[in-house]
């Protein structure tokens, strides 16, 4: 009888902890190394390849299909919205040419976090 209650408690604690870390992530600025990793992923042709379509500071030979990625904090006060755009751009524009990086598993959840951290510094 006691066991299920404990499990439920543990589970809800787990959820609480998860929420707390999720909040921390957006509240505290990303670490230097996370930003560096995110930049690598964003520029890597086999990963994000964001330069195919976006001008990004520090990247060479960018395409011009999408808008230049600048002033991100001003444009995305809510960092989660930025992540969502990268995860699946179809939410905002169903016909978008921008690949759904999360929904189609082009990048992992972790990789999307890192790319978001990097893009948020622009």
């Amino acid at each position: 009888m006691r066991k299920p209650i404990l499990i439920t408690m543990a589970a809800s604690l787990g959820v609480l902890v998860a929420c707390a870390t999720a909040q921390d992530k957006s509240a505290t600025p990303a670490s230097e190394s996370a930003i560096e990793q995110g930049k690598k992923l964003a520029f890597d042709r086999k990963k994000g390849n964001c330069l195919a379509c976006h001008q990004i500071a520090g990247g060479t030979l960018p395409g011009d299909i999408g808008p230049p990625l600048v002033a991100m904090k001003a444009r995305y006060p809510d960092k989660a919205k930025l992540r969502e755009q990268i995860w699946d751009a179809r939410k905002k524009n169903p016909h978008t040419i921008m690949p759904p990086f999360g929904a189609h598993r082009i990048l992992t959840e972790k990789e999307i976090d890192l790319v978001t951290d990097f893009i948020y510094t622009l």
Binding site: L61, P62, G63, I65, P99, H104
Partner: peptide, 22 residues
């Protein structure tokens, strides 16, 4: 495809734009 692109995306709607240097 995984990148979710149509022929028309690249050769109709964005014809004349650059994808990387192309």
């Amino acid at each position: 495809g995984q990148l979710n692109l149509a022929c028309a995306d690249c050769h109709v709607y964005y014809a004349g734009y650059h994808i990387r240097a192309d």
